[in-house]
Computed example of a mutant assay.
Amino acid sequence: MGIFNKKETAYIKELENKLKKANETIVDLNKQLESITKKYNDNLKFIEDNNIKDYEQVINQIAIKKDEIMNLRIEESNYRCKIKELTEQYDTLKRNKENSVSINVTEEIKTNSTTDGFYNFSEVSNEENNQIIYFISASKGKGSLAGLHLIDYTLNEYLYKVKYYIEQIVIEKYKSSDNLYDWLAVGLAYKGKGANFRKESLFYLTKFVSTANNTDWNNILSIDMDLDKYNIYSKIAELYEKEADLENAYNYAMKACEFRIYADSGMYRLGSILKKLDINKCVEYYKEKLTDPRYKEIKNGIKKELNDALEKQKKNYVYRPRKRKSTIDENMENNLKEIADRYLKYF
């Protein structure tokens, strides 16, 4: 990392090693937890009937492993935040020092829209053109992660009109790829395009998570620390919820929470889904969370959600999804595709 001095570089390396070790430990502990839980399930009847002491011992083992995993998650999150902060500093310095093409958003890009306030996607300004070429050039050196690196710019930079071009370029370039990292990139690109493309996004995102192994997940963290299992599974749950596929939404939200125990956003996501799926289960869910000491800092927020659920329960609330009114702007999509195709030669 040529921009940092030796001490800073060594510190980042140390954090990365600690993160790797934390990940490995969590994987190992999860395996132990699965083994203990299996033993509990397979032998529950025998243990209850013949040896209460052993039964209590198994229960205690499960509780200990869950606490160990929770503590490691917190430690892991701290490492990720530190690495992300330093990596962002590095990226900023690198851009300013080593690249002649600025990726800062200019007034030209902010105001490059039609008179009715919408972007004109049939034309690309010089500044937009320079940015797009820069992003492609910067991503090409990432090998099999190039597509993911490219779409990541749209997740972490406010790119205005250029965002839409990058999303479409990623889709056109990688939609037929056999590389699982490209599936994730295309899924994120479709998600960025909005409600009309949720099904396409779900196709690619679920294809990725059903195939990726732990090594694959660790590799994508080199692109963005927020592209972890918790966040990707949460995005899938969000998409399914918006598509009113509540069973799948619930399953993916539950899975997300396994990867980051006691995450506030994950807890609220599950509550939101349960409110639509079964209002009675939603009430019981929030009552349980309200008494959990690990959520004491957001107790008022949980109370608010519980009160809302109780009011709906009184009215025998049944969720009925609204019909989607939005339609695809064919002219805009054709313009985006035409422009995107022009940039494929830069790969």
Rank of each mutant, 00 (worst) to 15 (best):
E243L: 11
K207W: 02
N120C: 02
P293L: 10
I220E: 11
E338R: 11
W217L: 06
I59V: 14
K31L: 03
I83F: 13
I12W: 05
A237Y: 08
N96I: 05
R260Q: 04
I59Q: 14
Y190T: 07
K38I: 09
A195H: 04
D91A: 14
N280L: 08
Y134K: 15
N50M: 02
I64D: 14
I273T: 07
I12T: 05
F259Q: 02
E68I: 15
N218G: 00
I151T: 11
S272K: 01
L227V: 11
K255W: 04
F118T: 04
K287Y: 05
K304T: 05
S201K: 08
K66D: 13
N23E: 02
T111C: 08
I3Q: 10
R320P: 00
I169V: 09
I171P: 01
D329T: 08
L274W: 08
I236K: 03
V162C: 11
D341A: 14
A22T: 15
I261L: 14
K191Y: 05
A253K: 07
E8F: 00
K276R: 10
N307M: 06
N335S: 03
I273K: 07
S210V: 01
Y250G: 03
Q131G: 11
R198I: 09
E297C: 03
Y295D: 03
N307I: 03
Y317Q: 10
I232K: 00
K175Q: 01
I279A: 02
V162Q: 09
S77Q: 13
K142M: 14
L246E: 11
Y190W: 04
N300P: 14
N334H: 15
Y160T: 00
K229T: 03
S234L: 01
Y190P: 00
N17T: 11
F135V: 05
D224Q: 07
K163F: 06
L205C: 02
L310N: 06
R80N: 10
K7V: 01
Y164M: 09
D226I: 02
V58Q: 08
G192E: 01
L180A: 09
N43P: 10
I298N: 09
L29H: 06
E75R: 15
L180V: 01
K275W: 02
N78H: 15
Y79F: 15
M254G: 08
K31M: 07
S125I: 02
L180T: 06
V283Q: 01
K303F: 07
A138L: 13
I171W: 00
